[in-house]
Amino acid sequence: MDNLQILFVAPVFSLQLLIDGILIGAVFALAAYGMALVWGVMKIINFAQGEFVILGGFLLYALKEAGLHPFLGVPVATAALFVIGWVIYRIAVVRVVEKDLFISILATFGIAILLQQLMNQIFGADVQTVESGLGTWFLLDGQVTVLQIKVVSFFIAMVLGVILALFLKMTRLGQAIRATAQHFRAAQILGVDTDRVYAITFALNAAICGAAGALVSMIWVIQPFMGLAYTIRSFMIVIVAGLGNVIGVALAGLGLGAAENFAGFILGAEFQAAFIFSLLVVILLWRNFRLSLKRQYLE
């Protein structure tokens, strides 16, 4: 808690934490947008979300090791995750997509464990990061530093989010996806191939996560067992923002990034994970409390 005093003594440090938090938050928001998409369209809470993120990061890491420039590696990792997402849908998710939520959560949780172990086996359990080669900006006489890669990744994340939103609004396929989200039975009757829509939705989500992970590997670190935290962050953001609220997801993502950064600084880095998961519990209790204020009724 001593660090709390630092924030009062040197307010400029708060600015530093805020900037860093918001820049990272954009990546959280991107992954959360993917989760909201799958949740809304397929009625699945994808618990392998974080593993897709980490896998994207490790693919970028591998590409960098193979000699590819990291910025060229980002689209490659994204495309690779699209294919992986498609394959995972075809093999496993297709069989749980219309079952109850518990089964699909458990199945995707199993996929998450499988991916964790595969990454651990292939890439090792060490913490890795990818050097982007970009420099640092110094603001306010060097009191605030901003890594350029964080700014770049912030904009990449935002642009990807906007592209996805436009894709869902404008294209025929995007409309089919939204129609399926609203009423899959009706969409089916109107000739939408919902199986294909599900496959594309799941693959798209994996691709988004892959992009987010590639960015994470450059601005932060990746490790095979770090995925669950990203899943939980995505889940919290979606709960707070609500399904189908793109602006809300973006704002909640940025807010979460900032909150986490402050908490990590004040409580100490060793309690950062505890903070995320405690926050999850608090958010669920808060949501539940709000629901219980209006008694539900059934037909």
């Binding site: 749980v96 089964i103 199993g110 996929i111 464990i113 499988l114 991916l115 964790q116 172990q117 595969l118």
Partner: peptide
């Protein structure tokens, strides 16, 4: 890894 695959297989 096999355990992870086993988990998925049982649930799915």
């Amino acid at each position: 890894v096999a355990l992870g695959a086993f988990i998925v297989a049982i649930v799915v």
